[in-house]
Design a protein around this nucleic acid. Sequence first.
DNA 1: AGCATCATGAGGCATTTT
DNA 2: AAAATGCCTCATGATGCT
Length: 607
Amino acid sequence: MDFYTFDGNASGDDYEDIDWDTDDELEIQNITPSSCATLTTLNAQTINGEASSSAGPSNSDLVQKFLGMGFSKQLIAKAIKENGESNTNSILESLLTYSVLEVEDSPDELNSCHLNSPQQPQQECVDNDQLSSDYNESLCDDLSESDSSWSGGSEVADVTSSLPKHEKALLSLAKMGYSIEEASAAMERCGPQASIVELTDFICAAQMAKMEDVFFEEEKPKLPLRLNGDFKKRKLYDLDIWKRKKRKGILTEEDDAIRLPNPMIGFGTPTDAHVITHRILPDAAVGPPYFYYENVALAPKGVWDTISRFLYDVEPEFVDSKYFCAAARKRGYVHNLPIKNRFPLLPLPPRTVNDALPLTKRWWPEWDKRTKLNCLQTVIGSARLTDRIRKELERCGDTDNPPPHVQKYVMDQCRKWNLVWVGKNKLAPLEPDEVEMLLGFPRNHTRGGGISRTDRYKSLGNSFQVDTVAYHLSVLKELFPNGINMLSLFSGIGGAEVALHRLGIKLKNVVSVEISGANRDIVRSWWEQTNQKGNLIHLADVQQLNGDRLEQYMSSFGGFDLVVGGSPCNNLAGSNRVSRDGLEGEQSSLFYDYFRILDIVKCIMNK
DNA sequence: AGCATCATGAGGCATTTT
DNA sequence: AAAATGCCTCATGATGCT
């Protein structure tokens, strides 16, 4: 395969022109992860997904940890000076002691303590004028919006001011007889906005788990994945069931499977008060290169376990993009990137339908309580549907409040098809440019150049949410100030490329593999329009990309810094009524090519 | 052949009710 | 504790038109 010349294939997700009757496909069955890198098993995890570090943390890590717990820099410096760096517990004791001298205990306030003093890191602004004025206008009051599904002001990992309420909470727990370790673990776990009740609930659960582990001294199984999220009653219930099953000896493999976190915020989002900044990666996963893999979160059972197993046992980070923009997008991301000091793209995108689509506000009925859209898919609602709804509403007469059964019918269809109000009794699916905006792409990114409207929806529906991905990739900016070389598999319309560009990360050499000619055209066109100085190499088929070819590229510009890819979800997505066959499905099995290629790159880089 | 349009549930959690 | 209910999901295939 040589540098690709554009063909006539204009479909967004079609693989019909690929010969599927190859031997490769058959060999996928029962394949096991085999890697030239040593595959090590993940150490037993603590409940909060953060394994305790055996090596002593560096001074900055230490400071960061206590900053995250809400102590002021001055107090931390003092405590470290008195106790030395090695003894974390005595530092904490000292910090608490200082707090006793300063703070009065007032439990009533503890139930509602929040971080304040929002801070946004400075960020180089790149091509933000691509975005619509609606978009920009809505940004200013974004932070003040309140949303019942999540709380807290804008906050990034670096907290520099003293936050006595945290210290109060810690102090209260200590006074209640809990150990410093338990209290701090619970606080780190539940977040700064957690109430005392939640904190004690967590500690209780942890104690129960610990107690029972004493009774069941055998092998320590992996606890269900809890990357983040609060430890509410539901979680206790889960843990209860799990313990009970274990006692009865009926613990099945399913109980050991990866579970989705609730809320689905991964290691944190730009607007979360509490962000996890440390994790332990399995040795085999540590780069180079950095890799970033994406797929739908709600895949059939066992799929994410397999993906994680192949990708060096890295636990997926599940994130719903509704915490980044006005539309939901539940996705899992497996990556070996640092997670400390992430920062969001600026300006922050509109976070409600009202802000994202201001023209719908006038027609939005009071009884439609939606503030977010559901997942943007590859097809839209039909005209007949919206016509049926309009007739149904008109049948109710000239009222602002149709009967409940009509409201339910309308709302069900609205949620199912992501309809928005564009007139009296008039609903409509999103326009392609509205989808572009919601996903964080520049306006008209997919417009023109011969692509059909149908395929625009298809390509957009298969794409990344740029703000979400950019937040994760932002840590690369300080690591690669001179730019990066990237291998982009299943590039689609270039979500990763756009994200890096908007982050101000220079793209030196990009090898992009994408089956759809229309999508390649889009990326090529974007590349030229944004005056990229780097080198874009387009290929069509990941299956044809072998080690020799990779070695050629890598020797010409010195290896890849980042390997990005979101492999086909066709056989994993819930919308697929016909062939939801799992990871071994016709298209979704291309995941194994992502692993194959990543592993080759890894081998070459670590030679 | 390309394009637009339309109809087509099940799987799997989470929550509520019994 | 179990059953019922609610809710959401990067889609595929058939058809008719130009």
